[in-house]
């Protein structure tokens, strides 16, 4: 991203700040990039220093990044939901002890140590938030999207989830009760969306293709068979 020394960026940055109060759009663009370069250099310096002092291992950093980029994501949660749709005993287990039921599929650990599953019904739609920070069930959904961590979502979904849902293109029947789950402790919530119509006889693998990340947060619904066929 940058081949310059940190000092070059610092002086460039302060020059922009001090002498260009009325920025053009192009100027702002330059400014943003130099600013990001400053942060990139700052992070690299911090990482190198911590490695040099023996606090962290660079191979472990790569393994951590690989885990969340390539191994853990919403496909895990989709397998949980598909199994819950397919296997009534698993659905009962998931509602009674989600941590154990989800662990039986191999999804455990950090930010999913204590799981609760909340199942949508024709009468009730569940939606999950962390108003205090960004708590999210990592083992089943991976890292949260930006909007989940944003002030608009965190502030509004506890008060007016219906209008937030419209921003996701979701409109529920007026009589549907919306239940909001604010993740204030170390319990993490996974929404089990309703099984779409027209999926009788489908295998777990087929069903999993209908389960979106947002449907497991509650800002979406599972896809219909025709939506998948179109994709």
């Amino acid at each position: 991203m940058s081949h310059n020394k940190p000092g070059d960026h610092r002086s460039h940055h302060s020059h922009d700040d001090e002498h260009s109060p009325a920025s053009t759009h192009d100027h702002n663009h330059d400014h943003d990039h130099s600013h990001l370069d400053v942060i990139a250099v700052r992070v690299r310096s911090l990482q190198s220093l911590l490695v040099a002092k023996g606090y962290i291992d660079p191979d472990a950093l790569n393994a951590l990044i690989d885990t969340y980029e390539n191994q853990i994501g919403p496909r895990n949660g989709a397998r949980v939901v598909a199994k819950a749709w397919h296997d009534p005993d698993f659905f009962i287990w998931l509602n009674a002890d989600a941590t154990a039921a989800i662990a039986s599929l191999g999804f455990t650990g950090r930010q999913g140590e204590h799981m609760v599953a909340v199942a949508n019904t024709p009468d009730t739609h569940n939606i999950v938030v962390c108003t205090l920070c960004s708590c999210y069930p990592w083992p089943v959904l991976g890292l949260p999207p930006s909007w989940y961590k944003s002030a608009p979502y965190r502030s509004r979904v506890v008060q007016d989830p219906a209008s937030v849902l419209t921003e996701f293109g979701v409109t529920l029947p007026a009589e549907t009760h919306i239940t909001v789950w604010d993740s204030t402790a170390e319990v993490r919530y996974l929404v089990i969306p309703m099984r779409p119509a027209g999926t009788e006889g489908w295998s777990e693998e087929q069903l999993a293709t209908l389960v979106t990340r947002d449907s497991m947060i509650g800002t979406g619904q599972a896809l219909s068979p025709s939506q998948v066929a179109l994709a």
Partner: peptide, 18 residues
């Protein structure tokens, strides 16, 4: 994207490793 800048993934990893 999962990360918007390459340094974001480094911040995540350093934070978890520390």
């Amino acid at each position: 994207p999962l990360f918007h800048e390459p340094w974001e993934r480094d911040v995540l990893a350093i934070t978890l490793a520390m």
